[in-house]
Design a binder for these strands. Structure first.
Lengths: 206, 206
DNA sequence: GTCTATATCCCGATAGAC
DNA sequence: GTCTATCGGGATATAGAC
């Protein structure tokens, strides 16, 4: 993935891309909070000043990690949704992919959602997850001739998937692969319950 | 809330409690990531070494903030749930309180969920939200004679409430009081949809 | 027992040389 | 495009004043 030059140094190499890779590796080991420009530089064999030729500051590098998160997430959703036939199965597969992405690509998920990045400064992070548009398309098939209901259901599904993902990473379902399976199953069932009870989603408050 | 002594100093005062208050104020202004022991000390007129007489490190002070978050959250849930009569209304009120707490007490919510605290080091943060037990009690009334279904519904409600709260703070619903109302209403409707479609929640995967 | 004074180390960021 | 040098600030540990 990275392209380390001879002697492990980056003279005239693609330092920008290598920094993103190094950042992900550091975050995987020490968490978003434990990431530092100095540590990423050290791993690439460059001085701590070198990154500032490519990123204005620490947050800008983290934003680049967050942007990569969007790409990988979209790819994972597409990969896990392909085999499903009917709309409900496709929706459940997407929700499963959401939770699994959080678990399998935790550094990316945390960077996007828990790094405290200023979304107004990085509009590329504000844009909804690439898959949400895809989600809306499938949801439309379920909520025939009612785009308002479709939007309401899509929002509820996204929030529920996100909630299960966040609580999984918080340790609410335990640790390890069992916890991932638990969270994924719970999220899938919740998605089916939301579909079953979707009649009340677009209603005004009682 | 705090008890500043003469001259703004804390000689023989309750520095520990004052530090928690100061931490919340700093987090409110700069976010969890922007909090530092040095800044909190500066605001209280003590040296940067003083906090280490009460907290082993930065995380231990943040954990104290997280513990306070649990108390305030429980109080808010109780306050907002009191007027509701039937179980469904009480559940919806709890979900609303969850989302509103995130918005109104953002520093506390962020500290509990986005500070990257090690839960195995701070067991007081691992304990489920005080209100979840209360939630389970009310959910039991809806899922008659089926504790397994009740647990599944309670988990789905918690995850959905958390998801709406997290996305609200992430800016998904916009900014300001309108966004809070939007997120609260969506979460309330999602809770009602989960209750309506709860039959599939405890099922094995199809 | 509580806080000050102090010292070391690491990180973020900038300026100018190669 | 990267390095050297450097500055300010924060985390952390220790010794000592009150």
């Amino acid at each position: 993935m990275s392209a380390v030059g001879k002697g492990g140094r980056y003279h005239h190499g693609d330092l920008r891309s290598a920094l993103v890779d190094a950042a992900i590796a550091v975050i995987a080991e020490r968490g978003v909070h434990g990431f530092s420009m100095a540590e990423a530089s050290r791993r690439l064999g460059v001085t701590s000043a070198a990154p500032y030729r490519h990123f204005a500051d620490r947050d800008e590098l983290l934003a680049a990690v967050g942007a990569r998160a969007l790409q990988i997430f979209a790819a994972m959703v597409v990969a896990e949704t392909g085999s499903a036939q009917d709309p409900e199965q496709r929706i459940v597969a997407m929700v499963r992919a959401y939770v699994r992405f959080a678990a399998q690509e935790r550094p990316l998920f945390d960077t996007r959602f828990s790094a405290g990045l200023d979304k107004s400064r990085y509009p590329e992070l504000t844009r909804a997850w690439a898959s949400v548009d895809e989600l809306l398309t499938v949801v439309d098939e379920i909520c025939d001739r009612d785009p308002e209901s479709a939007k309401a259901l899509a929002d509820a599904l996204e929030a529920t998937a996100h909630g299960h993902a966040a609580l999984l990473l918080d340790g609410e379902y335990g640790e390890g692969t069992d916890a991932v399976a638990t969270a994924t199953d719970k999220a899938a069932n919740a998605a089916r319950a939301l579909i079953a009870g979707r009649a009340v989603l677009a209603q005004p408050q009682p």
